[in-house]
Design a protein around this nucleic acid. Structure first.
Lengths: 205, 205
DNA sequence: ACAGTTCTGTACCGAGCGGTACACAACAAG
DNA sequence: CTTGTTGTGTACCGCTCGGTACAGAACTGT
């Protein structure tokens, strides 16, 4: 059986990308249904039939964002050493935050660090997804300790947190208009910090 | 002449503090007039008579925030050396972001990194105020170069930007629920990075 | 006492919000 | 050609938004 009823007249993934750009630029609450439907080229009933609700659409957008726009982060974790992981992460993050064909900054931060009480679930959801990324990095660094890449008293959690902090700071800065070269300078400083803290013992304490 | 007409029945600065807490927690757009008036203990006409509009109230709140809640930043600039400036800034910032009697995070970031098109001026205003802070730090570091505290090829602008990035990242993290001790670890790593980048020549490049 | 001024509370405004009812159009199955 | 199913467009829902008109209360100056 192929599919009954009238066929959908738009591509759901393509419309999701249009919605992503709107949420990315204006945040969850700053993006109105009128903005979204205009960008997606559909009407409200089509949106609700295909995605359920504004919140459900947003969650689908964030999932797609993680899949597509954050792919660099997963491949950074494949680098052979912790130092190279950090270097790839910091550098590719700066590139992703300042792509001329994308809104500046990061959907996960722009989406809503603060929300009205009614939408508290949104900011919690975004915070949780950022923390999941941080924990993935921490797990990678824990592996590096096991592999004798990092010294035994290195703190994978603290190192991952530091990298996460820097990328979030870069996201705020990029959204405010910082240029790629400016963030690259900052990333280099952070990378030196990471190396010192990770590989020299007395660092963490 | 004292003051004509019916006297105001509330303290405008105290009400401003109540409004600050609401904006701090929910951002500019996430804070409704109903939330604000309830927290301030006044009615809408009193709010409009005393502060002009929601946007005008927010700007007054941000000004007060800079005066009161960011006083630590100004006194950090009075430290004798660049390293001590950075250390005081990072550490006091972490304390300010995680005060148990204040909302977590930073009003300037929580206020609105992203806004609807109608309120684009708000996020621009906040970004500009953050950049003003960054430039004050850069100016302090430029003085440190003049004073032979920092080496002649240190980059005051890049160093200030790095510190600004870390504090913004800490603000995002704190708003997401990070504890003070966790951010202190991150601040220590950042401080080592700062010292290395600032005081050793080949660092910046 | 009275006028002029300023603040307070109620009750309201138009506009935009997220979300939906409904009639109709486009397809698959029989 | 009919029937069942699903998407589309219009037109609308109740609600909340930021902001205000207005009447009365509380004060100062004469």
């Amino acid at each position: 059986m192929t599919q009954m009823g009238r066929p959908r007249e738009f591509d759901t993934d393509q419309a999701l990308d249009r919605a992503m750009e709107v949420f990315w630029r204006h945040g969850y609450e700053g993006a109105s249904l009128a903005d979204l439907t205009a960008a997606m080229g559909i009407n409200k009933p089509s949106l609700y039939a295909a995605y359920g609700s504004k919140e459900s659409l947003f969650r689908k957008v964030v999932a797609r964002y993680a899949d597509v726009e954050m792919a660099y982060a997963r491949s950074a974790l494949d680098q052979p050493t912790a130092r190279e992981v950090a270097a790839a992460l910091l550098r590719d993050n700066v590139v992703a935050l300042t792509r001329p064909d994308r809104p500046a900054g990061c959907l996960s931060v722009q989406g809503g660090t603060a929300c009205s009480t009614a939408n508290a679930a949104i900011s919690q959801f975004l915070a949780a997804s950022r923390q999941a990324g941080e924990q993935a990095i921490a797990a990678r660094f824990a592996r590096a300790v096991d592999e004798r890449d990092l010294p035994p008293d290195a703190d994978p959690t603290a190192l991952a947190r530091f990298l996460s902090v820097v990328t979030e700071g870069h996201a705020v800065h990029a959204a405010a208009g910082a240029h790629r070269g400016q963030l690259e300078q900052s990333a280099e400083i952070a990378l030196r910090a990471f190396t010192a803290a990770a590989y020299s013992v007395r660092a963490a304490r």
